[in-house]
Design a protein around this nucleic acid. Structure first.
Lengths: 103, 103
DNA sequence: ATACTATTTGGTTATTTTGCCAAATACCCA
DNA sequence: TGGGTATTTGGCAAAATAACCAAATAGTAT
């Protein structure tokens, strides 16, 4: 059953929410449990506003859910299927850039 | 075991190869078996050169492998873990854009 | 060898994404 | 109520991406 373009687009939007080094780092960290924005900011090492936008985008895509407690907002993963997928991806060998011998 | 930034970047590059409607459509189609570029071109409905660049990028990321037979080049998935992941993603509910009532 | 076919590459433009700064919000607590 | 902290939003410049056309390449078959 081939996927329709509409289905692929929706799925791609979710995948795009994981397709950035900082965003994936965040998702990986959240596999161990929820974290607040300030902790994620330290983890990523970018401006707080940048991290916040990443988080907002991931939440909108449905990848993360947030939860405010006290002064902080805690984010966590909306599903737990990430680990298996990453383990599988790690088996892939990226192809060397040069097909023909250099120069 | 928190992932390092280097690891996350490598993984993100692979995920990025799937994070585009046309590229994901291609990957989904290849779950049913290999296809040649001209068939994928028809599937995606874009210029042949555009499709070729998508394929090239996915192969370089390690997501696809290619195989030349006769006049055609056949592409297929390099791993079979995509289906489970997509099924999991399909359970996610994207958050509505508006947190506060409009206007 | 020549012509043909399938695919890739180069180049250009339009669009999207990213990241920072500054300013705005939200909301807890004294 | 006012100050303080955590987070989000708006705006902008730089960088990355995507799509097309045209031209190049690789390889087959005549």
């Amino acid at each position: 059953m081939p996927a329709s373009k509409t289905v692929s687009s929706k799925r791609a939007a979710v995948i795009k929410a994981l397709a950035h080094p900082s965003r994936l780092l965040i998702a990986e960290a959240l596999m161990d449990g929820e974290m607040c924005v300030c902790d994620l900011k330290d983890l990523v090492g970018a401006d707080m506003s940048t991290v916040s936008k990443h988080l907002s985008m991931m939440r909108q895509a449905g990848v993360l859910v947030s939860d405010k407690r006290g002064l902080n907002i805690y984010y966590r993963l909306a599903c737990d299927c990430l680990g298996d997928f990453l383990r599988c991806l790690d088996q892939l060998a990226p192809k060397k850039a040069t097909t023909k011998p250099c120069c």
